[in-house]
Each structure stands twice: as structure tokens, then as C-alpha cells.
């Protein structure tokens, strides 16, 4: 990769840009495969070998096995694709995912959302 000028960052808001798309292509491709129930079932039968089949590297595989959402984003996961894993495969909702990333309990996270509307 050629060196690039420093990027604008927004604290707490990771951007799915060309760098992330390059880094995360195989991870996102695996998540895209979860549009099919047969693939979701295959993943759940043996998560590690499913990751291997898609060529995920060690840090991506570990983040998957540990349900480490912030790490999944750091290793190139796009949220629309990770959502298929979270929602369709693991049965988590977006407040579960929010709580996992912010260190809040799910109830605290939901209360924060409600407070935003006041």
C-alpha cells in the first residue's frame, strides 16, 4: 500500500473506508455467506473451520470466536455484514451489540437510547 495522508477521525465512530474494506474483505465475505441458512448452520457446527474455509487470519478468527465486536471492526468488519452474524446467527439484537461495545449493561444502553429522545 502506498503511504496516505493522515485521516480525519471521529472519536468512537470507526469508518468503513477503503482501508477497512481491504483489510476485512474475507471476514465480510464470510458474514455475507450468512444470507443462507445452510451456511449459518455450517458455521455454528464448527466456527473455527468455517473461518478457515474463508481464509480469515488469526486475529479475525480470534475476534469471531471471542465475540469481540470492537476487535471485529478493527480487523476490517463492516457493521452491515457483522450484523448478519450478530442477528441472524447468534440471535443478538443491536442493544446487545451496543452494550458489548460500550461496556454498559444492556439495560443501561437501552436507558441511554430512551434518554436521547427526551
Amino acid at each position: 500500500m502506498i503511504p496516505r495522508p493522515p485521516k480525519r477521525t471521529i472519536p468512537g465512530a470507526p469508518i468503513f473506508d477503503s482501508e477497512a474494506a481491504r483489510r476485512g474483505y474475507l471476514l465480510n465475505k464470510m458474514c455475507y455467506s450468512f444470507n443462507s441458512k445452510a451456511n449459518r448452520d455450517d458455521f455454528l457446527r464448527d466456527e473455527r473451520s468455517y473461518c478457515e474455509k474463508f481464509g480469515l487470519d488469526q486475529s479475525q478468527t480470534t475476534a469471531i470466536l471471542e465475540r469481540d465486536v470492537l476487535s471485529l471492526i478493527r480487523v476490517g468488519g463492516g457493521v452491515y455484514f457483522l450484523g448478519k452474524l450478530a442477528s441472524g446467527v447468534l440471535g443478538l439484537d443491536m442493544q446487545d451489540i451496543g452494550a458489548l461495545q460500550t461496556g454498559m449493561t444492556k439495560e443501561e444502553f437501552k436507558a441511554k437510547l430512551v434518554a436521547s429522545g427526551k
Partner: peptide, 13 residues
């Protein structure tokens, strides 16, 4: 709305 990152749950009414 924001689903990802440490600022997940961000809303700006």
C-alpha cells in the same frame, strides 16, 4: 443512529 464503535447508541435529536 450508530451501531458500531465506542459511540454506539449515538442519537442527535
Amino acid at each position: 443512529h450508530q451501531l458500531e464503535g465506542e459511540r454506539a447508541g449515538f442519537i442527535n435529536k
